[in-house]
C-alpha cells in the first residue's frame, strides 16, 4: 500500500506543473487581452485566399 506515496507524489507534481504553467501564462500577458486573439485566429483563411490569388496571377504571367 506504500505505493500511495508514489501516487501522491506524482499527482501533486502534476498539479504543481500545471499551476506553474498558469502562473507563467499570466506573467507573459496571456490574460491581458482576451478578445483580440479570438478574432485573430480567424484571419488565416483570408491570408491564404489572398496568396492563392497572387499565385494565380503569377502563373498567368508565366
Amino acid at each position: 500500500m506504500s505505493v500511495i506515496y508514489v501516487l501522491l507524489a506524482v499527482s501533486v507534481t502534476v498539479a504543481i506543473v500545471f499551476f506553474i504553467a498558469f502562473i507563467l501564462a499570466v506573467k507573459n500577458g496571456q490574460y491581458d487581452d482576451s478578445y483580440t486573439p479570438s478574432i485573430r485566429m480567424l484571419f488565416e483563411d483570408e491570408l491564404v485566399k489572398e496568396k492563392s490569388k497572387k499565385i494565380d496571377t503569377n502563373q498567368l504571367k508565366d
Partner: peptide, 13 residues
Amino acid sequence: NPSISASIVNFGK
C-alpha cells in the same frame, strides 16, 4: 511597409 516587422492589436484597449 516592409520596415514594419510586427504589429499587434489590442482590441479592448
